[in-house]
Computed example of a mutant assay.
Amino acid sequence: MAAELTAPSILGFPHRPQWGPGAHRKALAGHLRRCRDHAGVPSRRAARSIAASESTLSRMETGLAPLKQSDIEQLLDLYGVRDPRERERIALLTHEAAQPEAWQPFAHATAPYLRPLLTMEPAARRIISYEPQLIPGWLQTEEYAQTVIRAAHPTAPAHEIAERARLRLQRLQMLRRPGDAPVLLAVMDSEVLRRQVGSPGVMFRQVQYLLDLLDELPFQLHLRIAPLEAGAAGAIGHPIVHLRFFAAEYLPDMVYLEQYEGALYDEKPANSERYLAVLNNLCGVASLSQHTRSLLTEALTYWR
């Protein structure tokens, strides 16, 4: 009886298609690993039961490999998971995990290093981002995005640049979701508003778009601007994104550290908390959200 009481359960992770297949796959993968640990089944034996290698099982247990219903059923039998409610929820999550990702229609124009972030951000309860050079990608207009992408990829064909820009616009739709939309707290350096991307007209329309978004999404979008006077507190040269998820018991915090033509991801709790402290420090030196509108209005006048 004690073993049953302490057995891992997936019932706390709800079926939420709007969170995306990646979140369901990751939650289910971690649950399978916990079930194996609880049953005391060695990885070699578990892999053999589904005619797979240990490395394949490891990828399944970290959400990096597809999860087949037949394999999962065999593993659950091996791990002694008999509860019909657990099995039913696992089947539902497995079906959801197999659905296409929101970015897949743009796959050929999506950088591989960005895909894990695109996969997981729809399941975020809260996103904190810092951007030292540009308007954050979620908040860019199409023409601003195209200008930025063209500068980074000058030889890319026009249709690929256009698709990459459309993907950036599509990402914002998660903030418009009814019910459980993420909250985005975006911090950017004040110089971003004075750094010309494209023509002055592009900048004017971009700043006006930010003002419009603040009106449209007063509860889901919080924008703060860090002044140059922030000094060392704001001297971080690369974008940082910290995601905290719904159903956090099953989905650990994720940190995204962007580099030139690449990115690092970190889910270790100690590192996640360290970067969260960095972002909280940046929020502390940035303007309060209620002052952002006046700073944007000043920028609008600058580009008029």
Score class of each variant (00 low, 15 high):
2 A>C: 03
6 T>W: 07
6 T>A: 08
8 P>Q: 04
9 S>Y: 01
10 I>M: 05
16 R>K: 11
17 P>Y: 10
25 R>S: 03
32 L>C: 06
38 H>N: 10
44 R>P: 01
50 I>R: 10
55 S>A: 15
62 T>Q: 11
62 T>P: 06
66 P>E: 09
66 P>F: 07
73 E>F: 04
74 Q>A: 10
77 D>K: 09
79 Y>A: 09
80 G>D: 03
82 R>D: 12
84 P>W: 06
86 E>H: 07
88 E>A: 15
95 H>V: 11
96 E>M: 11
97 A>D: 06
109 A>R: 03
109 A>S: 15
112 P>I: 03
113 Y>A: 07
117 L>F: 15
121 E>M: 06
122 P>T: 00
124 A>F: 00
126 R>I: 12
138 W>I: 12
151 A>E: 12
159 H>R: 14
161 I>E: 01
161 I>P: 00
163 E>N: 13
164 R>Y: 08
166 R>I: 03
167 L>E: 00
178 P>A: 12
190 S>Y: 11
191 E>R: 14
192 V>G: 01
199 S>Q: 10
200 P>V: 07
213 L>I: 01
217 L>F: 05
221 L>C: 12
224 R>A: 13
225 I>H: 04
229 E>R: 15
232 A>G: 06
232 A>W: 15
235 A>N: 10
241 V>G: 04
242 H>K: 08
246 F>M: 06
256 Y>G: 06
262 G>P: 13
266 D>A: 13
274 R>N: 13
285 V>I: 15
287 S>C: 14
287 S>Q: 09
292 T>V: 04
293 R>D: 07
295 L>R: 15
297 T>L: 15
303 W>Q: 09
